[in-house]
C-alpha cells in the first residue's frame, strides 16, 4: 500500500539527542562531517566512529533502522571500493594479472573510504531520525534567515516546505482513492507493456492534479482569511532556545574534532 510510506525518516523519541535544538543539531552534523574529512588515517576515523557510536547509543534508534539507511548506498560503496583497489598502487603488490594490480595500499584506501562513507551516511541519518521534518524546516529557515538581506526568499521556501509536508499524506491518500475508483471502472495498472502501464496512469494523474490545484486554491484562501501576508512582521509561537544540553553536546563534538586533528598531527610526525 502506498499509504505505508513514511515521510522523511523521523523516528519519534524523547532522548537527549531528540531534544537538542535543531539548529544545534545542524551545526553538530556539519562539525561531524568536517571531522570525517579532516581525519586522514584510521586512528582519526576511529575517533569519528566512536563519536557516532556514542551518539547512536544515546539516541536509542534501533540498529535495524541504521542498517536500513546504509542499504541504498551499498552500490556506491562497492563502486568506490573497486575504483580505489584498481587505481592505487602503493605498498606491496599482492596480485597482478594483465592490467589489474592489487596492492596493500589500494586495499587500505578502499577500506578507509568505505568506512568514511558509512560514518557519513549514519551520521546524517541520525540527524533525520531524531529531528522531525518540521523542526528541520524551522531550523533551516532560522539558520538561513541572514540571507534574507540578499533577497533570498527564505521564509517563502520554508513555508512551501511546510505545506508540502502537510499535504503529502493527504495527496497519497487521494492517489490511493482515485486508483481504487478507476480500478472499479476496469482500469488495469498491473499488466501490459511499460507504455500501456504509463498510459493507464493518465486517469489517475489528471484527477490528482485537478484536485491538487483545487486544494491549493482553497488553502490560499484560508491562509488569507487568517491574516497571512508573507514573512514580514511574523512571530513564532515556539522560540528555539539553546540550553545546557546543547552547549554540552557542542563541547563534546568540538573535543572530538580537536582529538582527530591532534591524532592527524601525531601520525604525521
Amino acid at each position: 500500500m502506498i499509504k505505508d510510506i513514511t515521510i522523511g525518516q523521523y523516528f519519534p523519541g524523547k532522548s537527549v539527542i531528540h531534544r537538542l535544538d535543531p539548529r544545534m543539531k545542524l551545526l553538530l552534523t556539519t562539525l561531524y562531517i568536517v571531522m570525517l574529512f579532516v581525519a586522514d588515517g584510521f586512528l582519526g576515523l576511529a575517533a569519528g566512529f566512536i563519536f557516532l557510536l556514542f551518539a547512536f547509543f544515546i539516541s536509542r534508534i534501533p540498529l535495524t533502522l541504521m542498517i536500513k539507511s546504509i542499504k541504498p548506498i551499498i552500490p556506491i560503496m562497492i563502486f568506490t571500493g573497486i575504483l580505489n583497489i584498481l587505481f592505487i598502487d602503493t605498498g606491496t603488490v599482492l596480485f597482478e594479472w594483465w592490467a589489474v594490480k592489487i596492492t596493500t595500499g589500494g586495499l587500505k584506501t578502499s577500506a578507509f573510504m568505505i568506512i568514511r562513507i558509512i560514518c557519513l551516511i549514519c551520521g546524517t541519518s541520525l540527524l533525520t531520525y531524531t529531528t522531525s521534518p518540521i523542526m528541520l524546516t524551522d531550523a533551516i529557515e532560522r539558520v538561513l534567515s541572514p540571507l534574507k538581506k540578499i533577497k533570498l526568499p527564505v521564509h517563502e521556501l520554508a513555508m512551501m516546505m511546510t505545506i508540502a509536508l502537510r499535504f503529502i499524506p493527504t495527496l497519497i491518500e487521494e492517489t490511493d482513492k482515485i486508483m481504487s475508483a478507476q480500478k472499479a471502472r476496469g482500469a488495469d495498472f498491473e499488466t501490459g507493456s511499460l507504455i500501456n502501464r504509463a498510459k493507464a496512469l493518465v486517469p489517475v494523474l489528471i484527477p490528482l492534479f485537478v484536485s491538487a490545484f483545487r486544494r491549493a486554491e482553497e488553502l490560499a484562501l484560508a491562509m488569507e482569511c487568517r491574516c497571512y501576508h508573507g514573512g514580514e512582521g511574523r512571530t513564532r509561537m515556539k522560540q528555539l532556545s539553546l540550553g545546557v544540553n546543547d552547549y554540552a553536546a557542542l563541547g563534546i563534538t568540538v573535543a572530538f574534532l580537536v582529538l582527530v586533528i591532534v591524532v592527524n598531527i601525531f601520525t604525521v610526525i
Binding site: P133, I134, T162, I163, L165, R166, T170, R214, R215, E218, L219, L221, A222, M223, C225, R226
Partner: peptide, 13 residues
C-alpha cells in the same frame, strides 16, 4: 472564516 473542506484549511503538520 471556516470553510467546507477541513483538509484544505489546515496549514501546519
Amino acid at each position: 472564516m471556516v470553510f467546507q473542506n477541513p483538509d484544505n484549511q489546515i496549514v501546519a503538520t
